[in-house]
Amino acid sequence: MGWLEGRFEESVVTTTLEQAINWARESSMWPMTFGLACCAIEMMATGASRYDIDRFGAGAFRATPRQADLMIVAGTVNFKMAARVRRLYNQMPDPKFVIAMGACTCGGGPYYKYGYNVVKGVDLVVPVDVYVPGCPPRPEALLEGLMRIQDKVRAMKDLTKGQPLEIPIPARTGFTHLPPELSDPDPVKAVEKQNAWAKRNKERAAPAKA
């Protein structure tokens, strides 16, 4: 924006129309309540008191696809349900985004080998934007997935150039810390600590002879 910035008095903000639309869009992602299985409970937990997905503007769960921007496919999709998933996706207005939540929707998960009725990944049915693995993923993981969607929205250029081809670089990253009893500035010592911890746990969990 360069030359425009700082030319006006305070409380006047300059931006491009595109950025303003993207900002509005990313701050009010309305997901559809689309709980299928176990992951739906974690999705509910994400929406409930402790994790509170409303902090990221995505707490308005809509019961109808017509009002939703984001489909969180939370749970196993089977062949009987696949047609419904596709129909619901088609009923959503553009621009629409899909999060595949959980191992089953990412690629069959634990039902891959013997699940005769399970779709091996929801991307065989609808296009997926963000995969959130885990069985089920923790609420933090779902929030991370939501932020990736928001990154994607921020890079949208549908007013000027259309959708960007490359995936945007994420603005945030889910870096975690190990607890102090497992971490050490010295990497060798840290590995020793972790091995000792693992050994101790294994001994504790060992069964007695019947």
Binding site: F79, Y116, L124
Partner: peptide, 19 residues
């Protein structure tokens, strides 16, 4: 009938591949 022991898993169902 899937719980028969000699049941063969479907390769595709309505255009979605099964395995």
């Amino acid at each position: 009938h899937p719980l028969r022991k000699d049941y063969e898993f479907p390769l595709e169902y309505h255009g979605i591949r099964g395995r």
